[in-house]
């Protein structure tokens, strides 16, 4: 790909000719048809594309949730795509934070306990209450998910993902289920974490407006990474036009 993964920074992921086919009986659906892409340490990468273009599939493979049909993903010097199930679990546990469109919080646990879920299995976590403070929800620590709004729940999910100090934060349509203003708050929180903690941030969206917030924007369609745009300047949420 022509656009460099950025100004001499370390490369975290090297994605090479990645293909993913889903076989459903007679029919084979190709979700990825040879994606090549680098992700640099500490950058904020936006993956933009219409629904069905393969964004989630790509993110899931990078995040160690799924295996490709062909091609490789290198995580630093290691071939991620050769990992066994157990290795992938360990990898997710120590390196990756996930945020999804639906928050997937434990309904039985309070906000703080949901975050503690992640910190209890991490080596060097942020204290749960600190993580909540990062997303501006320390006051809601004792609330259960059902007592919070969607945006608040998503911020708890982010706190949970961040609390174990992952190197990479992968977000699949984090604002997909939220209205405009709530979505902006969530994006601000994410961007803030990227800057303050230096966490590599990959955000998937079908909303072109969000692209402006990232360092680079990858456009996907039909299972291909079509082009990469390097933003001269990251926009703040206030500057976004929805």
């Amino acid at each position: 790909m022509s656009e460099d993964a950025g100004n001499g920074r370390d490369i975290v992921f090297r994605v090479r000719d990645l293909c993913k086919d889903y076989r459903m009986g007679e029919v084979t659906v190709s979700a990825l048809r040879g994606v090549t892409l680098d992700v640099a340490a500490g950058e904020f990468l936006v993956i933009l594309g219409p629904s069905g273009s393969g964004k989630s599939t790509l993110l899931n493979i990078i995040g160690g949730l799924d295996a490709p049909t062909a091609g490789e993903v290198y995580f630093r010097d290691e071939v991620l795509t050769n990992y066994t199930d157990a290795q992938r679990t360990r990898y997710r546990r120590s390196r990756i934070g996930f945020v999804f469109q639906f928050y997937n919080l434990m309904p039985n646990l309070t906000a703080e306990e949901n975050v503690a879920l992640a910190t209890e299995i991490a080596d060097d976590p942020i204290a749960p209450i600190e993580a909540l403070r990062l997303v501006g929800l320390e006051a809601r620590r004792a609330h259960f998910p059902s007592q919070m709004s969607g945006g608040e729940q998503q911020r708890v999910a982010i706190a949970r993902a961040v609390a174990k100090r992952p190197e990479i934060l992968l977000c699949d349509e984090p604002t997909g289920a939220l209205d405009f203003s709530t979505g902006k708050v969530v994006l601000e929180v994410l961007s803030d974490i990227n800057v303050r903690l230096g966490t590599t941030l990959v955000v998937i969206t079908h909303n072109a407006a969000i692209g402006g917030m990232g360092d680079r924007v990858v456009r996907m369609s039909d299972g291909h990474a079509r082009d990469i745009v390097v933003n001269a300047r990251r926009l703040t949420t206030d500057e976004l036009e929805w």
């Binding site: 995040g63 949730l65 157990a86 679990t89 360990r90 990898y91 997710r92 546990r93 120590s94 990756i96 996930f98 999804f100 639906f102 997937n104 919080l105 434990m106 309904p107 879920l117 992640a118 299995i121 949970r160 993902a161």
Partner: peptide, 16 residues
């Protein structure tokens, strides 16, 4: 299953 799957995503092993 959603909450349990998301635990797996967070890196909890099957036995955990």
């Amino acid at each position: 299953q959603r909450e349990l799957a998301s635990l797996r995503v967070m890196g909890l092993t099957i036995s955990e």
